[in-house]
């Protein structure tokens, strides 16, 4: 894993925006999520293999839109019909997936280096996302995910916690800087801490 993360030269630490006379603990927190292993799994359309008996890290593949299956280290996000993103802290995840998902039935691609991941945490996190994304975030629940846009940038939203709301936002690495500026600009109104 390279030491140069997509937002290393962009992300600034400190307190920004309208934070005066506000308790720092109540401010939004924006950070870059680093060193995640991100694996895309596609189950071939012509494959007749049943997914019921296949698990990755003990997790079944979610079969419904916006569902996520997860444990402490790994999250499997529904990314489309027969398409998932596995997000994991486990460095051996790629080998573990290859053991369970053979290449006759699955296309497995390591896209860890091709995504920038921004985390926004705080009670106003939904309000920040609403400024640029048309998705109905009021109906978004913990451990839901969805592909959408934020000011025209294609993103994947994963709500990992709801007390306070904590969103992991995935975008293409090349859009990372632009997306980061969109998010931090939208957060200025509430004040945020770059962590």
């Amino acid at each position: 894993m390279t030491a140069i993360t997509p937002l290393e030269l962009v992300h600034k630490k400190g307190t920004f925006g309208d934070h005066h006379k506000k308790n720092e603990e109540d401010l939004l927190q924006i950070s870059e999520v680093k060193y995640l292993n991100i694996i895309q799994i596609v189950h071939y359309k012509k494959s007749t293999l049943q997914l019921n008996n296949i698990t990755v890290e003990g997790l079944k593949f979610p079969l419904e839109s916006s569902k996520v299956s997860f444990n402490k280290q790994t999250r499997i996000l529904w990314n489309g019909p027969k398409t998932w993103l596995v997000i994991s802290l486990n460095e051996n995840i790629l080998n573990n997936i290859r053991e369970k998902c053979d290449d006759k039935n699955f296309a497995i691609t390591d896209i860890s280096h091709s995504r920038a991941v921004v985390q926004i945490k705080g009670f106003q996190a939904r309000e920040v996302l609403k400024k640029g994304s048309p998705i109905n975030l009021n109906e978004f629940e913990k451990d839901n995910c969805a592909g959408t846009v934020f000011h025209g940038v294609t993103i994947l939203v994963d709500l990992i916690n709801d007390n306070p709301d904590t969103f992991n936002l995935f975008t293409l690495r090349s859009f990372g800087e632009s997306f980061y500026h969109h998010i931090t600009d939208a957060a200025l109104e509430f004040g945020y801490v770059g962590v």
Binding site: S65, S66, G80, P81, P134, I135, A146, G147, T148, V149, G152
Partner: peptide, 17 residues
């Protein structure tokens, strides 16, 4: 805003399509 019901994801804004 025009909304389109994706057969896979449900109702979403036209911006996504």
């Amino acid at each position: 805003m025009l909304e389109i019901k994706c057969p896979y994801c449900g109702k979403r804004s036209q911006n996504e399509f």
